[in-house]
Amino acid sequence: MHTAQFQIRKNQLPTSRLVSLPEEPLAAGEVRLRVEQFAYTANNITYAAFGDAMNYWQFFPVPDDADGAWGIVPVWGFGVVEQSRCEGVAVGERLYGYWPMATHAVLQPVRMTPEGFLDGAAHRAALHTIYNQYLRCAADPLHDPATEALQALLRPLFLTAWLIDDFLADNAFFGTCESGQRGVMLLSSASSKTAFATAAQLAKRPQVEVVGLTSAANVAFSESLGVYSRVLTYDQLEVLASDAPCVYVDFAGNGGLRKAIHSRFANLAYSCSIGGTHVDQLSGARDLPGPRPVLFFAPAQAKKRHGDWGAAEFNQRMARAWHSFIAQVSQPDAPWVKVQRHQGPDAVAAAHALVLGGRSDPRLGHMLSLQDR
């Protein structure tokens, strides 16, 4: 038996390879899972773009890669236990969690509960718990077999979006809503799933105006969602008053756009860096007028709110918001996401190139599997 891994060059993201590795016997306490299906979105491109800075490459290190040139992009999806040498994890169990782009994964379950467990592998010990947790589908209150694809595509993005909204509100929108005025929340890459999930949360807050920034090709889609107060193309910043009190929520990572926003808006109160969907236009944040861009790390806000509210209240609030969001996304007459499936190594490589190049229809949600048909 062999495990196939889809690997990409860390400093040249379009370059990929498929590597076949022999399966090693399981050690005591380990389980081997078949990675059945996983989502691939702009969020995964962000994992690759910030792989070194935010330790994403460390979750699934490439074996025998002496110069560290190759990496495995982490993905969210579903796996099924094929072999188990761990008491409490049964063959056939279905799990939701963070996987390598591969046909199989080996985990070392620790801190087991009826709801799930953590991977206790030594190389993941210093990495954040939110990425090391695996949930048993049979006990997961958010799991619905009928909407597994939407869960894989949107659940991790939604959690980030929900925490961005909470972070902004927790900081009183950085003073942009004082004296009864509406603060302007500028969201780049407005058609991306994390951006529109964030907009869906912010749209419920009357004290802010949510402005989506996107390419001309994606204006109609972004407007159709009904979560943006208005949608502008990247070259329409002059439509907004230069003295508007605003916050920039940057999903694109486009250095030129960031500089244009920092230069135009005299009352830019905060610059929040989320992602890097424009991978060919990423740049640093030096010598910018206005506030220094700050990278948002969702687990840090999650940890804060666990302390503020407790785990049970955190989970209840998140679950209520999730179910409300899924109802919006799944409107029968106008669904926000249409699932497109890609099976096999060649299809996975093609989907990677499509998402990386930003050429995908924003309404499509790509579900991938390296498993043979």
Rank of each mutant, 00 (worst) to 15 (best):
Y56D: 01
D346H: 07
K204S: 12
E82C: 13
P22H: 01
E178T: 15
E148P: 00
L95E: 10
N267M: 04
T214F: 01
S271N: 09
K304T: 11
I274K: 11
C86R: 13
P114V: 04
Q236I: 07
H2F: 10
F173Y: 15
K10P: 00
P156N: 08
A49Y: 00
A138G: 13
Q328G: 08
A48P: 06
L364M: 12
I261A: 06
A138S: 12
A350F: 03
Q108V: 09
I8Q: 06
L354N: 12
G275M: 05
L225Q: 07
A172R: 14
D166E: 14
P22Q: 05
F158H: 09
L268F: 03
W162L: 02
W309T: 15
E82P: 05
V337R: 06
H104F: 05
E223C: 13
A197D: 07
R264T: 09
L157N: 07
D52Y: 01
V62Q: 06
K204I: 05
S191N: 13
K338H: 04
F296N: 09
D361C: 13
F174D: 08
A125C: 08
H342F: 11
A266H: 08
G212R: 05
A302Q: 14
S215E: 02
D144C: 00
M185E: 11
G71F: 01
N171S: 08
L150S: 07
D65A: 00
R258M: 14
F60M: 01
D144H: 10
V249T: 10
D243Y: 00
K303H: 10
H352E: 11
Q207F: 04
R341A: 12
D308C: 09
Y270V: 02
Q340M: 11
V279R: 04
V239G: 02
A190H: 11
Q5A: 09
M101C: 09
Q133Y: 14
S330A: 15
A172E: 14
Y56H: 07
E115D: 12
K338G: 01
A49C: 13
Q133H: 12
T3D: 15
R305L: 13
E23V: 14
G255E: 10
S179N: 15
A69V: 02
V210D: 08
D361S: 08
L107S: 07
A197F: 04
I326T: 07
S263W: 01
R359S: 14
S20D: 13
A53V: 01
S192F: 05
A351D: 11
V208P: 04
D235C: 07
G276M: 07
Q7Y: 00
Q151W: 00
P245N: 05
Y228H: 11
L26W: 02
N132P: 04
Q108M: 05
F60K: 01
G310V: 12
K193V: 09
Y96R: 05
P289Y: 02
V73R: 07
F60P: 04
